[in-house]
Amino acid sequence: MSAPFSWIRPEPHGIHIVPADCWVDPARAVDKALVTHGHADHARGGHGQTVATPETLAIMKLRYATSDGATPVHYGETIRLPGGVDATYIPAGHVLGSAQILLEHAGERVIVTGDYKRRADPTCPPFQVTPCDIFITEATFGLPLFTHPPIEDEMAKLLDRLAAHPDRCVLVGAYALGKAQRVIAELRRAGHHEPIYLHGAMEKMCRLYEDHGVDLGELRLVSDYSKEDMRGAIVVCPPSALNDRWSRRLPDPVTAMASGWMRVRQRARQRNVELPLVISDHADWGELTRTIREVDAQENWITHGREDALLRWCQLHQRRARALALVGYDDEDD
């Protein structure tokens, strides 16, 4: 009989499930990986076998052009791993295909959230609160100052600015996987049905979302149109293209950025953003603390982000917690 929870070990390069010898979101190639979602800091190519939702596998195939050893697991489905470990994939509400992974072994339950949020998102099913013994949570926006406003407010800001500048375009910097499609879907929900122009790097991911049933309306590629065509239109590009030469082809763009970091003025100014849109696919402080309370695990492990503050909150609220020092997670582009 081994010590409680000795079968799961946080290592610098990922979370190791010892009896099954497989890893959750490993930062380097391994024989067998369980992947929570398709963002590059969680999903890497080159594993012998990759277990993920069909959507995540499709995203990984698009990004890494490999599909060897892909093992799909649908939401709610459980697979049996070697060594008597069961893994169940549960919606995390982060991006298309994102999942929390519930691991069960010897009557002990551990959840690895990957990244998650609690807000409604038209591009993926919502986070499900699932009871467990150890809750391994992210903490990207783990500071009490992070409160993401209702997305409707941010859409209204964007559409107001668009209406105020009929001769310009609004260029929205948004992470190419997830954020971009969510912003487009929310614009449609807010009643904006004009064509939306895309940076070339976003096209394939948008098509993939559409193939999975997410309606994004009429999308056009910037490269197929002239400056004149794009006056008064919304253009979506990856954050790295905002101040790049690429943007010179646009009609006097108003620079916007959709990111949770936009809550802090200097962060927006550093990126030369004129229209900050506080939109995040991660849980804000209120969502993080609410989730910890609702899941009510015996112990909380905090993986990446501003873990100091969340750890402090757990102490103040008499909840057991520890910070894990995982490497390779990158939160700057959200």
Partner: peptide, 11 residues
């Protein structure tokens, strides 16, 4: 503690 962590982040 939460104030100081927040203040350091925002500057």
């Amino acid at each position: 503690v939460l104030w100081t962590l927040s203040r350091d982040f925002v500057g």
